[in-house]
Design a binder for these strands. Sequence first.
DNA 1: ACCTGAACACCGTTCAAGT
DNA 2: ACCTGAACACCGTTCAAGT
Lengths: 212, 212
Amino acid sequence: MQLRRGDVLDGAMAILDEFGLADLTMRRLATSLGVQPGALYWHFPNKQTLLGAVVDKILEGLDTPSDTDRWDEAYSELAHRLRAALLAHRDGAELVSATFASRMTSSKVREHFVAAGTDYGLSREHAELAAYALLYYVLGHTVDEQSRAQMEELGALTRAPISPDSPEVIGGESDENLLAGDPTVRFQFGLDLFIDGIRARLASPHSALHTS
Amino acid sequence: MQLRRGDVLDGAMAILDEFGLADLTMRRLATSLGVQPGALYWHFPNKQTLLGAVVDKILEGLDTPSDTDRWDEAYSELAHRLRAALLAHRDGAELVSATFASRMTSSKVREHFVAAGTDYGLSREHAELAAYALLYYVLGHTVDEQSRAQMEELGALTRAPISPDSPEVIGGESDENLLAGDPTVRFQFGLDLFIDGIRARLASPHSALHTS
DNA sequence: ACCTGAACACCGTTCAAGT
DNA sequence: ACCTGAACACCGTTCAAGT
């Protein structure tokens, strides 16, 4: 039976979720679909385009409008939804981040971030710039968060040499303890930094070009 | 005459600047040094480590302390210096960004961003989070800026089909005109967003955990 | 229309063996 | 100590030829 474009996409998502971005190669994908590598190029012109389609799948659902009428809540919700979408797939943040430069310009997600600004008094240009700044933050934070989480998964398997139900070790976290804690709270902190910055811009729009 | 570690590093920087990150392969580097690929593995255990050393070179000089006593100027100067360092090498932003997750935790640059916060009343934890948020922004913005600039270079060679000294075309920039303009000004806008957000945090530290 | 077979031009890394 | 030679196990992409 014939391979359809959707099958290729589903196969790619499956490899991504199970084995990660590094294992998402055209040859491995072909093998998992029981087909020769060249066959994939009938459905997608190249790997870049395939990954773009995967990114669109990861990001789909982000465009349902927020039901709040507060601009700060709209920004916050959008940011949290984007983060959640990235975290929902293995290496999701890294993949979207890597494709971002060439594709996010035409993305719906970007437009929604912009709209959340223009709807509440920001000029088009300032809303664009604020949207990008926020996107950079969300992507950067989430790439970092996800890679740390994956490192910890590996560490959890490598560590625990004595007993799995040993009492909690105290004193081993002096290393990076300040960066521990609920990632969502850490995410929210940077988000609030942005939102407060935008609030200042809305309060006194003419300060935009001053160096702080 | 023998190959030293420094020669390998210099060769890597030369390929990066002349041909870009995609051409910075171990085999190409070996060829440019007149040596077999395996020889590089005597000086560096793997490519990742080599790239890490290249990143350190790109980022060296970032740790000279700022002479200002204003925290906002310290943040701003640090951010501008980081951006300048990234822009000083072809694909510099992309390279540093790619290595960031695994290496910036131990970077001097990160520590300086943190210090710029703690020196002026931010708690250690908040300063850490603010530093990361700002780093994500600078990296994201600069990767974007640099990739756009490189696309334009290609476009400038592909375009201009009639005459190189033709009068300026009007009407062709409706496409993305809002995102044109001085990149430094655009960079400053997002930077000010951050700094104003931090200012709000300094003014009322207890609002940190509220959703804006 | 859709896929195979087979090649092209590459990668990073390892390692016995040379000097 | 430092490097060569040669291999191993991969990549993405193309394209004549098959069905």
